[in-house]
Design a protein around this nucleic acid. Sequence first.
DNA 1: GAATTTATTGATTGATCGCTACATAATTCA
DNA 2: TGAATTATGTAGCGATCAATCAATAAATTC
Lengths: 200, 200
Amino acid sequence: MTDHLLSKGARGRPRRFDPNAALITGRALFHTHGYEALGIAAITEAVGIRPASFYAAFGSKAAYFERIAEAYVAEVLPLETFFRDDCPIIDSIAKLLGEAARTYTACSDQAGCLILESLRADRNDEGRRIALRIAQIRREKLQAFIARGAPAVALIATDVVTVTMAGMSAAARDGVSCVCLEQVAAVATVGLRSLIEGGA
Amino acid sequence: MTDHLLSKGARGRPRRFDPNAALITGRALFHTHGYEALGIAAITEAVGIRPASFYAAFGSKAAYFERIAEAYVAEVLPLETFFRDDCPIIDSIAKLLGEAARTYTACSDQAGCLILESLRADRNDEGRRIALRIAQIRREKLQAFIARGAPAVALIATDVVTVTMAGMSAAARDGVSCVCLEQVAAVATVGLRSLIEGGA
DNA sequence: GAATTTATTGATTGATCGCTACATAATTCA
DNA sequence: TGAATTATGTAGCGATCAATCAATAAATTC
């Protein structure tokens, strides 16, 4: 991680910056400002490089964002952590929603979910297209997990979880507190429990 | 409405276009593309005027959007329609959420709520600032209505409704169907009923 | 040392952004 | 009829956008 400059067998002039660090920096910037509002100039200034170096390393703004978004979805609220076969599905969902409330409000400068917030853009926005693909994969994964414990209502339960998380992400960006979102998650869980356990 | 060209007492050269029609056109465009993604060029082309005429009539893009957003919030899902004193608060909320599901999916090119979707932007985005002010006023109004029927849990119930509507608006933009959103609204209502009626 | 390879710097490119200056056209009021 | 007023068309402002070009620098390979 710190030996990015060494790269023994590399020919040519070595990089003067760490691409991984640049991805971390970019993640924070995209999370704060969004895909469209964040310009190359702001990225390169924050990383401490010139545009040409940025494009040599990452190819394009879209490719740069895609790498960041892929890493984000793999790290933040990974579904495998919550859905285990020895745990009632409703408990898994409750834990997921509660943890989402905390994650989305952990840093006021980067509130909400990077992926879900990147969906809020024009249809033809490149950032939205990338985020949409990632969000759909995640959604299918979630639905598969829920289907294992509640096959009859998996689709609607997945929609409820998805809508709730999107709403919590939006609310977090509008400044709603962690405690409030935890309560929202709890109320949503009540409805979901009723749905899954076959209540009215 | 059709006599905008007459305006008996008006001095100077008369307008060649209907500002009200231009507001309608702009509402559809903003709803489809969002504040930032919609440029003056696209607006003026759709309305059939030149930029100079646009600025003479509306002052700025922000002022134009503000007039559209104010009209939108007054017309779409007006809270007074749903909250009446002779109706249990949970029924009012259920009707509001159900109608939101239908409204948000009525037109696929303008899915979701114009105000809520305009909140998804950079903090310093002018469109977001305008939408945020309108959304906050609406939120306070909603909380006041809910407090009349359920004062003890008005704050959290308001948060749940707000989050659910924001999530439904986002889902509608991602292509989720009306039927699915109606089911989501129904599940959310179950949780809210439990909250309001003091259940577990 | 010479050739090759890769990354850097610095200066731009063409497109688009919101917005406006200027002259002209069309109307009302005196 | 002429002055005042308002809207229009043309043309372009400075700023910013993502992305790139040519020249140079720093490494490896031969």
